[in-house]
Computed example of a mutant assay.
Amino acid sequence: MTRTCLQVSHEVHIDAPVRHVWRTLTEDLTTWWHTVSRRGSHEASLDAFVGGQLLEGGGSGRRGGPVWGTVTGLCETRYLEMCGRMDLPAGVRGFLEVDLDGTASGTSLRITHRASGPWEATRWALATSGWALTAGTLRDVVEGRPA
């Protein structure tokens, strides 16, 4: 392993108002959550305030899973920022930004993930495809398609 940096950004258009996308993003995580978790979890909960935590797992809506990240910035219905372990290997730090912009026909969603530290190249590739899948799944859920 060598010390390396990753920045991945994915943008999708969602045919829904910003407030509906924000609500799904922050309150209905179990409907769209998809990570490259080593634990295989597809459930999460978010405390949507600065200092709040994104917890992964727990099962059936229970809290208490591992801390995936801490909310470090938030502008309701517009911007969410988190820093933390994000299921990355020891010594790797992650930073996540989610931007929402209202458009005439819905919402533009952009997810940007940055990470740095010693990590194998194959894992970086999985993170890249994982965020594309996550953005697409969130879009599909908000638009009423099966996830």
Rank of each mutant, 00 (worst) to 15 (best):
E56Y: 09
H42Q: 12
A127G: 09
G52L: 09
P118D: 07
T70Q: 11
E43G: 01
A127F: 13
A125N: 12
W22F: 08
C83W: 03
V71N: 05
G94W: 08
G40P: 05
G106V: 11
P17S: 12
L126I: 00
M86A: 05
V8G: 01
W33N: 02
C75G: 12
A16H: 09
L126G: 01
T77V: 12
R3V: 11
T103Y: 10
S45E: 11
M86V: 06
L126F: 02
R39H: 09
P66K: 03
P89Q: 13
S129D: 14
L96P: 05
H42G: 09
W119P: 00
V92M: 08
G84A: 01
W68T: 03
R63S: 13
P66S: 06
S60I: 02
T4F: 10
V50K: 05
A127R: 11
R85S: 15
L88M: 05
E97K: 10
C75N: 13
F49I: 09
H113F: 15
G40M: 04
S37D: 08
P118A: 09
C83I: 00
L25W: 09
S108P: 00
V18W: 04
V12Y: 12
H113W: 15
E76K: 04
S37Q: 01
R78D: 10
D47R: 07
G130M: 10
T70A: 04
H10N: 13
S129M: 13
T30H: 12
G64V: 05
D87Y: 04
W131R: 00
L55A: 03
C83D: 13
G73Y: 12
H13P: 00
W22K: 04
L25F: 09
G73K: 11
M86R: 04
E97V: 06
G58N: 12
R62E: 08
T35F: 05
R19N: 02
S37H: 08
